[in-house]
């Protein structure tokens, strides 16, 4: 467009025609009714299974079969949750917590260090190669390399332990984390690094005192993204563990389902209970994300 669009450069047009005619009708045609109705229809599609899940988890199994499945329970009960908890739920939950936290913390730290090094040492050939390998790694699906990973875990004598799930989880969180964190560190103004150096800070000190706080929103994003993926991971626990002692929540869900069978409310309770922590994390992280982004440090 020309730099002076407001003066009405389209002079070949009759000026009367661009006058605001029929504002009400105009607004009506402006409305994106296809997108709008689709938006609401999609909301129903998304919410119906979730709504059904939650209300069913509070029904008694006897009541479930005789009531309308989409109506809330007439006699609210917590017995399904009790049944799930009695079936070793706490252990599976703790296993998932250990795996997720145990993978997230080291994965985030080493990814952040690598991202910092790759951005700051842009001219270094070795760091360039490392970056290239991480980019290549984005294209490697976990499923495709699961057999050699299984072999490595057996050789390390870690089969059927929680570490067996943690180690590959860390490795497969690295490529995307480095990419996202690197893009963010790149946005930190060069003058800030320069002034840190004038003050005699080492690279190590600059990383922790300058880059780390400034990268916080990206760190939160990376942590949430990886936490969801690891918490929900099914393939690694399925292949790298076998005893119920080491099962994480997604595996436990599958065994709950075969155990509870036709007790649909108990199945619903187990799914609801496993989903709550990650929804809570999202709820907390969302606010942190927003406050981090609106803190206004970079713009």
């Amino acid at each position: 467009m020309t730099p002076t669009p407001s003066t009405g450069t389209g002079t070949h047009r009759a000026p009367a025609k661009t006058a605001p005619s029929r504002p009400v009708g105009r607004r009506f045609t402006d409305r994106n009714w296809i997108g709008g109705s689709l938006g609401w229809v999609w909301l129903v599609i998304v919410m119906v299974p979730l709504y059904w899940l939650v209300i069913t988890s509070f029904k008694t199994s006897a009541n479930y079969f005789i009531t309308n499945p989409l109506l809330p329970p007439s006699d609210l009960t917590f017995e399904n949750y009790q049944l799930v908890v009695e079936n070793d739920f706490i252990r599976y939950f703790m296993n998932s917590v250990i795996v997720t936290v145990g993978a997230i913390i080291p994965a985030t730290l080493i990814s952040f260090m690598a991202a910092y090094a790759i951005v700051r040492g842009a001219g270094n050939r070795f760091l360039k190669t490392i970056n290239g390998i991480f980019l290549l790694g984005l294209a490697i699906p976990l499923q495709a390399v699961i057999i050699p990973v299984y072999l490595i875990i057996i050789k390390m004598e870690l089969y059927d332990t929680l570490q067996a799930i943690i180690l590959p989880s860390i490795a497969f969180a690295i490529p995307l984390s480095v990419l996202v964190l690197g893009n963010f560190i790149r946005d930190v103004p060069k003058e800030l690094f320069e002034s840190m150096r004038m003050d005699g800070a080492t690279e190590w000190g600059t990383m922790w005192r300058l880059a780390f706080p400034l990268t916080r929103p990206a760190l939160v994003t990376v942590i949430i993204y990886n936490a969801v993926g690891i918490w929900n991971g099914y393939l690694l626990p399925l292949i790298l563990t076998q005893s119920p002692d080491q099962a994480t929540i997604p595996l436990a869900l599958a065994s709950f389902q075969s155990e509870f069978g036709v007790n649909v409310p108990a199945v619903a309770a187990s799914v609801t209970l496993t989903t709550v922590p990650i929804v809570l994390l999202y709820a907390i992280g969302r606010r942190q994300l927003v406050s981090g982004l609106t803190a206004g440090f970079s713009k």
Partner: peptide, 14 residues
């Protein structure tokens, strides 16, 4: 600084 992530990824990815 880049080495830990690199070693980890080479070992379980590459």
């Amino acid at each position: 600084m880049a080495l830990p992530a690199f070693v980890m990824f080479v070992f379980f990815g590459i």
